[in-house]
Simulated assay, not measured.
Amino acid sequence: MAGRMGRIALKPVNIALGVAAGAVAGALFKQVWKVASGDVDAPDAGDEERGWGEVLAAAALQGAIFAVVKAAVHRGSAVSTRRLTGHWPG
């Protein structure tokens, strides 16, 4: 599955993995925020009841979690592709 056909064949898999990674990252962020702040809901940037520090801390935490989950899924997908095909995707 090397070359162009391999990339085409893996596209739907990568899209599905991206959607799943987003869902996992969102759920993980909610749990981490609940433990870290004691609040069930993370602040929204438009919530006037929340301060700058809380809003920016939540955004930074959410970004970090999404980036780590995305990198883990992408790397895992590449390693799995290499195991299945013998070629590193690229």
Score class of each variant (00 low, 15 high):
residue 69 V to R: 06
residue 55 V to D: 10
residue 35 V to P: 01
residue 13 V to A: 01
residue 68 V to K: 02
residue 70 K to Y: 12
residue 20 A to W: 15
residue 85 T to S: 01
residue 5 M to E: 11
residue 72 A to W: 04
residue 80 S to M: 14
residue 82 R to E: 00
residue 76 G to T: 00
residue 16 A to C: 05
residue 42 A to H: 01
residue 89 P to E: 03
residue 65 I to A: 04
residue 46 G to Y: 09
residue 35 V to G: 09
residue 85 T to W: 00
residue 74 H to T: 15
residue 49 E to L: 13
residue 56 L to N: 03
residue 55 V to I: 10
residue 37 S to V: 10
residue 28 L to R: 11
residue 57 A to D: 05
residue 28 L to H: 02
residue 67 A to M: 12
residue 46 G to S: 04
residue 90 G to M: 11
residue 1 M to I: 11
residue 60 A to Y: 07
residue 90 G to D: 11
residue 19 V to T: 10
residue 57 A to Q: 06
residue 77 S to G: 15
residue 7 R to L: 15
residue 25 A to R: 15
residue 57 A to Y: 04
residue 44 D to T: 06
residue 44 D to E: 10
residue 50 R to H: 13
residue 89 P to C: 12
residue 56 L to A: 02
residue 59 A to R: 03
residue 61 L to P: 06
residue 29 F to D: 12
residue 54 E to D: 13
residue 40 V to I: 10
residue 56 L to D: 10
residue 32 V to C: 07
residue 81 T to Y: 06
residue 44 D to V: 03
residue 15 I to E: 13
residue 61 L to V: 07
residue 70 K to L: 13
residue 25 A to S: 14
residue 40 V to K: 13
residue 30 K to Y: 09
residue 88 W to Q: 02
residue 62 Q to D: 07
residue 80 S to W: 00
residue 75 R to S: 07
residue 8 I to G: 10
residue 75 R to Y: 14
residue 48 E to T: 02
residue 80 S to A: 15
residue 75 R to G: 06
residue 38 G to Q: 15
residue 67 A to T: 07
residue 5 M to Q: 14
residue 40 V to F: 08
residue 34 K to G: 14
residue 90 G to Y: 08
residue 30 K to G: 10
residue 1 M to N: 07
residue 14 N to T: 05
residue 22 G to A: 09
residue 49 E to M: 03
residue 66 F to P: 01
residue 7 R to T: 11
residue 5 M to R: 09
residue 19 V to W: 09
residue 85 T to I: 10
residue 85 T to P: 00
residue 3 G to W: 12
residue 88 W to I: 00
residue 33 W to Q: 01
residue 43 P to T: 10
residue 23 A to P: 09
residue 7 R to K: 15
residue 20 A to H: 07
residue 17 L to A: 10
residue 87 H to E: 04
residue 69 V to Y: 09
residue 65 I to H: 07
residue 5 M to F: 10
residue 85 T to Y: 00
residue 59 A to E: 10
residue 75 R to Q: 14
residue 41 D to S: 03
residue 36 A to T: 07
residue 83 R to D: 00
residue 37 S to G: 12
residue 66 F to M: 02
residue 49 E to R: 08
residue 18 G to T: 04
residue 4 R to P: 02
residue 22 G to W: 15
residue 72 A to T: 01
residue 75 R to M: 14
residue 82 R to Q: 12
residue 57 A to E: 04
residue 23 A to W: 09
residue 48 E to Y: 02
residue 33 W to A: 01
residue 2 A to V: 13
residue 53 G to W: 14
residue 82 R to Y: 00
residue 85 T to M: 00
residue 20 A to S: 12
residue 46 G to K: 09
residue 13 V to W: 00
residue 42 A to S: 02
residue 14 N to P: 09
residue 61 L to F: 02
residue 21 A to T: 15
residue 70 K to V: 13
residue 39 D to G: 13
residue 88 W to E: 02
residue 15 I to L: 05
residue 20 A to Y: 03
residue 36 A to W: 03
residue 78 A to V: 06
residue 68 V to Y: 08
residue 26 G to M: 11
residue 29 F to C: 02
residue 73 V to K: 03
residue 60 A to C: 12
residue 1 M to R: 14
residue 50 R to D: 08
residue 29 F to G: 01
residue 6 G to C: 14
residue 8 I to W: 06
residue 90 G to Q: 12
residue 36 A to N: 00
residue 26 G to L: 04
residue 52 W to N: 07
residue 89 P to R: 07
residue 89 P to S: 09
residue 44 D to N: 08
residue 71 A to W: 14
residue 89 P to F: 13
residue 45 A to G: 02
residue 42 A to N: 03
residue 43 P to C: 05
residue 7 R to E: 12
residue 81 T to R: 01
